[in-house]
Amino acid sequence: MKVGILALGSHHERHGAALPLDTDAQIAEHIAREAAKRASAEFFGVLKSSYELPEINTGEHQSLEELEGEVREAVQEAKDEGFDAIVLVNAHGGNEKLSERLNAIEENLGMKIIFNTIICKLEGPHAGTGELSIGSVIGITDESKLEEHANVGKHPEVGFAGLQEVREKYLWAEKHAREIEEFGVKIDKFLGEKILQCAIVDVINDVRELGTA
């Protein structure tokens, strides 16, 4: 079975002072490229669309329908090029809603799809220590802005600590916010490398699982 890899992130989402707006897209691309290289799969690029949950206003996102449409087009293109399956590497939490629509895409296009969102589970709070550390490893964290980054009054999106409505609606957001309030943020390259390698290996395992299906 011929397997391709697509990356999903967000391209215009606030990530505090020390991380760029396209942090999620860059992390997803790094994981997808590395996994493709190690597993002898083909990297198909990074999708432009992303979705965000209600009440989380941290940047510019698209509708779930737009995201689904772009995924359909990309998977169809892969099918036309002779691929049998796709691994979607996602690094933006809001995109996880897409998983509810993937079965229909699989059935309509006759393509097997695995949605890998492990990095979202491993990295912890939004723009927190995990993402800062990963960003440092791949070269996108501005370490000179770490002190400003930790100011949730100025950057309320960090761990969603300053977004009260989000904290009240989503239990996971409240948990992440409290983690930021209690422990703050830091850069730990060992942690960042460990998280990245775990995520890359997980994607490689998905590729190999499809390849032997």
Rank of each mutant, 00 (worst) to 15 (best):
A161D: 11
E96Y: 00
F160R: 14
M111P: 00
H126G: 06
S133F: 09
N116R: 04
A91C: 09
G124H: 06
N108G: 11
V152M: 01
H149G: 09
P156L: 06
K121Y: 07
N108M: 09
D80H: 09
E106T: 10
E96L: 10
K97G: 07
T129P: 08
E100T: 12
V87K: 08
G82P: 00
Q76H: 08
Q76M: 13
V87G: 05
N90S: 06
E100R: 14
R101M: 08
T141D: 05
L88Q: 02
L163Q: 11
K79D: 10
I138T: 07
K121H: 15
I114C: 09
E148Y: 02
K79R: 14
T117C: 03
I113W: 13
A161S: 15
P125F: 11
D84M: 04
A104P: 00
K145N: 13
K121W: 03
H155Q: 07
I134T: 10
A161G: 09
N103H: 12
G135E: 02
A85S: 14
H149N: 08
A150E: 12
V87W: 04
T117S: 13
K145C: 02
L102G: 06
M111L: 07
G153H: 06
G110Y: 02
H126Y: 14
N116C: 04
V137G: 14
E100M: 09
L163E: 01
K79T: 02
K112N: 05
V87P: 00
N151Q: 03
H126I: 11
D80F: 03
F83Q: 06
E157L: 00
E148C: 03
G94R: 01
G159L: 09
G153D: 15
K121A: 15
E157W: 01
H149Y: 13
I114R: 14
G135M: 11
I119V: 15
